[in-house]
Simulated assay, not measured.
Amino acid sequence: MLVFLGFVLGAVIGSFLNVVVYRLPKGESVVHPPSRCPVCGHRLGALDMVPILSWLVFRGRCRYCGAPVSARYPLVEALTGGLFALAAWLHPVPDAGLVLVWAFTALLIALSFIDIDHYVLPDGLTYGGLALGLLGAALWAFPVAWGEAWRGALAAAGLLALIGGFANLVLRRGASG
């Protein structure tokens, strides 16, 4: 039952992740205005936002204007649902650990799709991942691995800063030449 619940919850979270992936890089709010068709702008009804099923029922088209709806929407929903179900299967005790795994999974999915589209990882999401990782270390390994968690976080941040600095150097040099 937990695996099924994990899939349903994951699909719903995946539907919200589609909003995050679409709006966050544009600097738009992820809560307002409500979901709408990107072509005709019509506000989506409750039936339009049923994860995966609505895309199948309306054959991948907007029910209001008939514009095609990207297959990425049900893909993100199904991927999130599948990974949540897998996590529930591997961690059959519904505790804080499972919730943390689900949160981290959702975060990584959002970051992955934003990176695919825009080649950027928003600071708000990456810092959120850092906070989740440190929270997990604090809950399950404190005090033994707390120092290791901080050292790992700082090493990863330093490595990412080096990669980012090198990329900026290469990109600037390539743009001027």
Rank of each mutant, 00 (worst) to 15 (best):
residue 177 G to E: 06
residue 72 R to N: 02
residue 105 T to N: 02
residue 69 V to D: 05
residue 165 G to Y: 05
residue 102 W to V: 00
residue 149 A to W: 03
residue 21 V to F: 03
residue 125 L to A: 01
residue 151 R to G: 01
residue 172 R to N: 14
residue 8 V to A: 14
residue 48 D to C: 12
residue 98 L to R: 12
residue 105 T to A: 07
residue 72 R to P: 07
residue 9 L to F: 15
residue 150 W to L: 14
residue 68 P to W: 14
residue 31 V to S: 14
residue 129 G to N: 13
residue 133 G to P: 03
residue 87 A to P: 01
residue 69 V to L: 14
residue 90 L to V: 07
residue 51 P to Y: 04
residue 18 N to R: 01
residue 141 A to Q: 14
residue 131 A to F: 12
residue 173 R to H: 13
residue 87 A to T: 01
residue 106 A to D: 00
residue 24 L to F: 10
residue 62 C to Q: 08
residue 6 G to L: 09
residue 167 A to R: 08
residue 7 F to I: 02
residue 35 S to H: 08
residue 175 A to M: 05
residue 45 G to H: 08
residue 69 V to T: 07
residue 50 V to N: 09
residue 19 V to T: 09
residue 44 L to Q: 09
residue 1 M to W: 15
residue 174 G to R: 14
residue 20 V to S: 08
residue 134 L to P: 05
residue 170 V to P: 00
residue 82 G to K: 00
residue 89 W to M: 08
residue 16 F to M: 10
residue 112 S to D: 10
residue 162 L to E: 10
residue 22 Y to G: 08
residue 48 D to N: 10
residue 104 F to D: 04
residue 101 V to P: 05
residue 8 V to L: 15
residue 96 A to R: 15
residue 158 G to K: 03
residue 103 A to W: 11
residue 67 A to L: 09
residue 38 P to M: 04
residue 161 A to L: 14
residue 48 D to I: 13
residue 89 W to C: 00
residue 152 G to P: 01
residue 63 R to G: 06
residue 23 R to L: 04
residue 3 V to Q: 06
residue 24 L to I: 06
residue 38 P to C: 01
residue 65 C to H: 06
residue 61 R to G: 00
residue 23 R to T: 02
residue 143 P to D: 12
residue 176 S to A: 13
residue 26 K to V: 05
residue 160 L to W: 07
residue 27 G to A: 10
residue 29 S to H: 11
residue 156 A to H: 03
residue 1 M to T: 13
residue 74 P to W: 07
residue 60 G to R: 10
residue 145 A to R: 08
residue 142 F to E: 00
residue 130 L to H: 07
residue 6 G to I: 09
residue 86 L to P: 01
residue 37 C to K: 04
residue 171 L to N: 13
